[in-house]
Design a binder for these strands. Structure first.
Length: 478
RNA sequence: CGAGGCGUAGCUCAGUUUGGUAGAGUGCCUGGUUUGGGACCAGGAUGCCGCAGGUUCGAGUCCUGUCGCCUCGACCA
């Protein structure tokens, strides 16, 4: 009992202080370190390995859907950034400016990209001439800089890693289809790779991307009931094309403007993983992206034959999953706690008694369930258990979201829920921005999205009483 | 950008009120005993007290400035 107490003291309990629990985890699971650069973090090997697995998963999906990777400059001349009015208004307050090259003042200052629409557009203007050049399906992996006032590791940092897809299409329908297709890729990725259930929907005008005609989003709910926008996909129409003078000769032999999309997912998603699956013993990683999927822990490893057998088992497991052994001389208890902190999905314990019985103990990270497995069956049991951990994480996250999703018909109900509960509140809405602002002022809620799966909750907008046209989800967001 | 908190050993922090030899726990190194839920014994190394000025015989401690980090708000992926 005394030992158990010691374990949970290692990090702040999530019930006690969720924000502190979060920062404890990112530090103690060795995901990041702070740096001397304001609002920027060092992503350490274990954190970066998670990102690399995410990159691999996403990049494979992008390639499968016909996209190509490119790289754009990290600087954007001020004149280029200013070409599209809404866009520059949206981003200007948070860009970093480069004013000098060496000791010489630049004739035109340049910003460090906060996003790369303008650079892609400048390039597209040069290379798109005919409808035969379309579609252009480009993506880039890079970092961007936004001068945030308040920063938190992964969730909001001044520099963050992401991918940004930028595509150009012959018709509006094609571009809209692309926007939805990539949102679906993100949603499928979140659910099958990260075990995070997401709600797909459209952002309100107020919340949509600067310069976009429509923004689609996947919204995830964190363990504490707060929402996290986890990926976005934007439809731009031909607005940027006009601003950047991108035209092509159409099938009718006349000049036309192409229709554009962009879509992005960032290292913020690592924050979503932590806050969706983590618990008071530390990080819990979904098996698909866990850098180590299984850790082999020899018990009483000084005893004759234990280490040899453990090495042998590790080599076998390396062929079917990302397996590692910890043969350091730390105590077994220390190792248990360590790999739980790091969120390794499966632990394999093997001591002299097991070896004698030709078996080992497999322990799931998500629920600590122990299974005794014959060493002859490892190759079938390990993949089964990894799948079981994934499914367990998904259903737990889904259950949390379901239990924290409420519906409200009147504004009083909305305020009551906002004050007493943490989660999603579903209502109807008249689509008037004035009402959206009142939700913020009176209940502290922002709109998360108008879900693709619309439902009928009531006939009128809770705020103004006028006929409602959409069902919408409200919440408090990270 | 507003409000609050904090910068002292690798880490967590005490010491600041009342100026007077730089501290603890943990981690680290050596050796030994241990090992199925964060082990134990013995020995050892570790400091520009964030930075810059000032007051003083003397500053981790007082004063001024400055930089940074954390938390909560307002704004954003």
């Amino acid at each position: 009992m005394a030992d158990q107490k010691k374990m949970v003291e290692a990090i702040t309990s999530m019930e006690e202080d969720f924000a502190k629990w979060y920062t404890d985890i990112v530090k103690k699971a060795d995901l990041i370190d702070y740096s001397s650069v304001r609002g920027c973090m060092v992503i350490r090997p274990y954190g970066y390995a998670i990102w690399e697995n995410i990159q691999h998963q996403l990049d494979t999906r992008f390639k499968e859907t016909g996209h190509e990777n490119v790289y754009m400059p990290m600087f954007i001349p001020e004149s280029l950034l200013q070409k599209e009015k809404d866009h520059v208004e949206g981003f200007a307050p948070e860009v970093a400016w480069v004013t000098h090259g060496g000791s010489e003042k630049l004739t035109e200052r340049m910003c460090v990209r906060p996003t790369s629409e303008t650079l892609f557009c400048e390039h597209y203007a040069k290379i798109i001439n005919s409808y035969r050049d379309l579609p252009k399906l480009y993506n880039q992996w890079c970092s961007v800089v936004r001068w945030e006032k308040t920063t938190r590791p992964f969730l909001r940092s001044c520099e963050f890693l992401w991918q940004e897809g930028h595509t150009m299409h012959e018709t509006a329908d094609e571009a809209l289809a692309e926007t939805e297709r990539m949102l679906n890729v993100y949603a499928e990725f979140c659910e099958t790779a990260l075990a995070i259930p997401v709600t797909k929907g459209r952002k309100t005008k107020k919340e949509q991307f600067a310069g976009a005609e429509a923004t689609y989003t996947i919204e995830a709910m964190m363990h504490d009931g707060k929402a996290l926008q986890s990926g976005t996909s934007h439809y731009f129409g031909d607005g940027f094309a006009h601003a950047f003078d991108i035209t092509f000769q159409g099938r009718d032999n006349k000049p036309q403007y192409p229709h554009q999309t962009s879509w992005g997912m960032s290292t913020r998603i690592i924050g979503a993983i932590i806050m969706t699956h983590g618990d008071d013993n530390g990080l819990v990683l979904p098996p698909v992206i866990a850098p180590t999927q299984l850790i082999v822990l020899p018990i009483a490893q000084h005893k004759e034959g234990v280490l040899d057998k453990a090495y042998e088992v590790t080599e076998r497991l390396k062929k079917i999953c990302r397996a590692k052994i910890d043969d350091s001389d730390n105590s077994a208890g220390w190792k248990f706690a360590e790999y739980e902190m790091k969120g390794v999905p499966l632990r394999l314990e093997m001591g002299p008694r097991d070896i004698e019985a030709n078996q080992c103990v497999l322990v799931r990270r998500d629920n600590r369930e122990k299974t005794i497995v014959s060493l002859d069956e490892l190759e079938t049991k390990v993949p089964e258990l990894l799948k079981a951990v994934h499914d367990g994480l998904y259903s737990k996250a889904l259950a949390n979201r379901e239990s924290r999703t409420y519906t409200a018909v009147t504004m009083d109900e909305v305020k009551e829920l906002a004050n007493t509960k943490s989660g999603f509140i579903k209502t109807m809405w008249c689509e008037d921005e004035a009402c959206e602002i009142k939700f913020k002022e009176e209940a502290g809620l922002t709109s998360r999205c108008m879900p693709f799966e619309q439902e009928h909750i009531s006939d009128v907008c809770p705020c103004c009483g006028k006929p409602a046209t959409k069902s919408i989800i409200w919440g408090k967001a990270y």
